[in-house]
Amino acid sequence: MKIIIGSKNPAKITAVQNCFSQEESEFLSLDIPSGVNDQPFSDEETIRGAINRAAGALKQGNGDIGIGLEGGVQETNHGLLLCNWGALAAPGMEPLIAGGARFLLPEEVASRLRAGEELGPVMDDYAKKKNVRKQEGAVGIFTNGMVNRVDMFTHLTTLLVGQFTYHVNLKEF
């Protein structure tokens, strides 16, 4: 099976690879634009970015499935939550979507995002590290390393693959 990943981000690539047999799968990662703001600011925008990446990956990579993973934030009455969404595109079916972990961002970070900054650079500054988004992610920082970005996106990809195999099995009967 040829799996096209709509990102060059190492955490996202590893997460997708974690969910498929390495012997039975071929992986290609492409830099697919999300088609949304660099900092998605709602579930709907984050979902749209994931779908755009999945559909674009499938089309450009000419594979069996395309996977798009997108991180964003969602404003709530409790404050600004980190959110993440994924989509799986395959020929002949509507994209599948799944959402993952959520947690409240500290106001120090949230206020900078509301002012128009993007989470990745804000986290680099906040954690005094480089490339947090390509390593542990905000989730790794704020869970004290108990959950990292690969873990978060692996869970999300597992939800997508589970839905996909369910739908494929339904078609066989």
Rank of each mutant, 00 (worst) to 15 (best):
I141A: 00
G72M: 03
G35F: 08
A15S: 12
N18K: 13
G120I: 00
R102D: 11
I47N: 03
Q22N: 02
G66I: 12
E75G: 03
M123S: 07
F27I: 00
D125E: 14
L30S: 03
R149N: 05
D43Q: 11
V73Y: 04
L80G: 06
F27Y: 08
E172K: 14
I5E: 02
D124Y: 02
G56M: 09
P106H: 11
I3G: 01
N144T: 01
R114N: 13
V109H: 07
E44K: 12
G86Y: 03
G100I: 14
Q39G: 06
T46C: 07
V168L: 13
T14R: 15
S25R: 09
G63M: 04
V36T: 06
L113I: 15
D43H: 14
I3E: 02
G72N: 01
L113Y: 09
Q39W: 01
M152V: 10
D43S: 14
E26G: 04
C83Y: 05
E24F: 05
F103C: 05
N52F: 06
F103L: 04
Q163A: 12
E172V: 09
S7F: 03
R112F: 07
L156S: 07
I3Q: 02
C19S: 15
L105Y: 11
S34T: 15
D125N: 11
G6V: 14
E70T: 09
E23D: 11
G61N: 07
V150F: 02
R112W: 04
T157Q: 03
H167W: 07
K130P: 00
Q135L: 04
A115K: 11
A110C: 04
G140I: 08
N77C: 10
S42E: 13
G116C: 01
G120D: 09
A101G: 12
V73W: 04
V16T: 14
V73M: 10
G72A: 03
S42P: 13
L82A: 15
N144M: 00
Q22D: 03
V139E: 05
R149P: 01
I5Q: 08
Q39L: 02
L81N: 14
K129M: 11
C19Y: 08
W85F: 15
N62Y: 01
G100M: 09
L69F: 12
I67C: 06
H167V: 02
I4C: 05
L105K: 11
N52R: 06
I65Y: 09
L58N: 13
T154E: 10
L58M: 08
Q135K: 15
L88H: 09
F153R: 02
E118L: 00
N169L: 10
S21T: 08
I65S: 11
F173T: 00
G49C: 11
N131S: 14
P106A: 13
N144A: 12
L156R: 01
I4T: 11
V147D: 00
D31V: 09
E75P: 00
G79A: 07
D31R: 10
M123D: 07
M146C: 03
D151M: 08
N37Y: 01
P40S: 06
T165E: 10
M152L: 15
T143W: 01
A55I: 15
F103P: 01
G100F: 14
N37P: 00
T46M: 04
S7P: 04
T14P: 00
D31K: 12
T143L: 01
I65N: 03
F27V: 06
I3V: 15
N9M: 07
K130E: 05
H167F: 13
A54Y: 05
M93T: 01
S7E: 04
